[in-house]
Amino acid sequence: MTVAFALHDLTLGYDRHPAVHHLTGSFATGSLTAVVGPNGSGKSTLLKGLVGRLAPLDGRVERNGLRQSDIAYLPQQAGIDRSFPISVMDTVLLGCWRTIGLFRRVRRVQRRQAEEALMAVGLDGFGQRPIATLSAGQFQRVLFARMLLQDCPVILLDEPFTAIDAKTSADLLRVVMGWHGEGRTIVSVLHDLDQVRENFPDTLLIAREPVAWGATAEALRPAHLLKVRQMSEQWDDRAEVCRRGVA
């Protein structure tokens, strides 16, 4: 079994306060993993650490030769200016940045791929619309179409279905399952436990400390979920220096 990400005693956080504390394990290549836990449990922080946007406070992430451009990352709150005067088509075409870069022309092949991607996310015929006219759900579909064009072996999704209607979320989940079928490695932060149980083979249950990581049915056992609920949300200003793992 090859591994996309291997985490070695990884601690991530802000201002020396850990948000993900001593996490060890790995995401196998081609695996489809849900990251589940309450608010403030370090899920988004973990994705930022995986993609390399946040340097570890301790421990390390091994990316096994993955380059930055091999990882597609959909943040929860993308710093996207949705009033920007750009069309849906141009936004989706950004997905082929690896091919076109700063200078190269967008070819007809790529335009067709973009149209197919829009069709796959249910936005057929939306190409010329300015993105400012889209609803939140439609815009999320556009971002998925862009990821389709990015064609990355690893895809990280941070709450991709939050605040989105059932139909959109079902459509986009189908896209995710398609990626899984193509052997891509997917890590997604999710809240809907039924959705996770139905679709995601693996789950990482986290409450700042890892609680369980493995097959979904096992990871989401009632005992584990109860333990997660007792997680303290406090940020202790007078916390001592963590001594774990220090000889």
Partner: peptide, 23 residues
């Protein structure tokens, strides 16, 4: 003319530009 595309993406979605390794 040279940096136009990068500049527009940097205005519109700076996080994406960083993620794809754009300048």
């Amino acid at each position: 003319a040279i940096i136009g595309r990068g500049l527009i993406v940097e205005c519109f979605d700076p996080g994406f530009l960083r993620a794809v390794g754009g300048p």
